[in-house]
Design a protein around this nucleic acid. Structure first.
Lengths: 119, 119
DNA sequence: TTTAGTGTTATACCTAACTATAACACCAGA
DNA sequence: TCTGGTGTTATAGTTAGGTATAACACTAAA
């Protein structure tokens, strides 16, 4: 797991997002164990507390389950839940704003599709 | 000028972005004066230093000109420059990522267009 | 029962990004 | 020259997010 940090967002947030991505991509599947706090902490030279914060978020979102003394596990159904949430967020929040932006920039979606970037 | 703050990004950044938006929308045009530091500071109960930071960014980007003792002015050509920059950023950075995301979500652009959200 | 792996927490310190309050420096117009 | 508008800056304090180092608590397996 490699992460290219930006300095706009807090590290625990970026780590959280990266883990979500990896679960969505199937790198970690339902029931799998995730890399340990110590492991991530060492790999990225990050404080364990910072790593814990990222996991804490995931736990609160119902994506990950902590087993003290054992590790962190992807909850059953997490992949589906994340995919559902992401889709919903995209449709209700991102897409409408995007359409506005495209209009404002004087572009059209048809035009963008011609660019060859899609096929 | 009303701003709904989020607590993800620093206030000076959000203020900066909002001002850029307003210039792009034509609320402030080339050569216009912008609301004063004190004005914005009072309206939003923000520290003048924070407001200054937002303006400082705009100055560095060549969008705004400071006239000490007078105020802040939209530079000539700023609107065009911003529009150009935003379009370029959108085409090279945002759109490609977006196309990927749409694919990943199992959606198609054709499908999204049918939603009636565009026309 | 020891060991080596888990997550958790305490202490102490740093920095960025704020806050409030106040003073300083500049400029145009009455 | 004064006044009321500009932007700027100093002081002092708060909070979130991070760092390093170390210790504590739990669990499975040798």
């Amino acid at each position: 797991m490699e992460i290219s940090w930006n300095d706009r967002d807090p590290i625990y947030r970026q780590l959280h997002d990266r883990l979500v991505e990896m679960i969505l991509e199937g790198t970690y599947r339902n029931g799998d164990s995730l890399p340990s706090v110590r492991q991530i902490s060492a790999d990225h030279r990050i404080n364990p507390i910072t790593v814990s914060k990222a996991f804490q978020l995931l736990v609160e979102e119902g994506v990950v389950e902590k087993k003290r003394g054992l590790g962190m596990y992807v909850m059953m159904g997490a992949t589906e839940k994340l995919a559902r949430d992401e889709k919903k967020f995209f449709l209700t929040e991102e897409w409408p704003r995007l359409v506005e932006k495209i209009k404002r920039l004087g572009l059209s979606i048809e035009e963008l599709l011609e660019e060859g970037s899609v096929k």
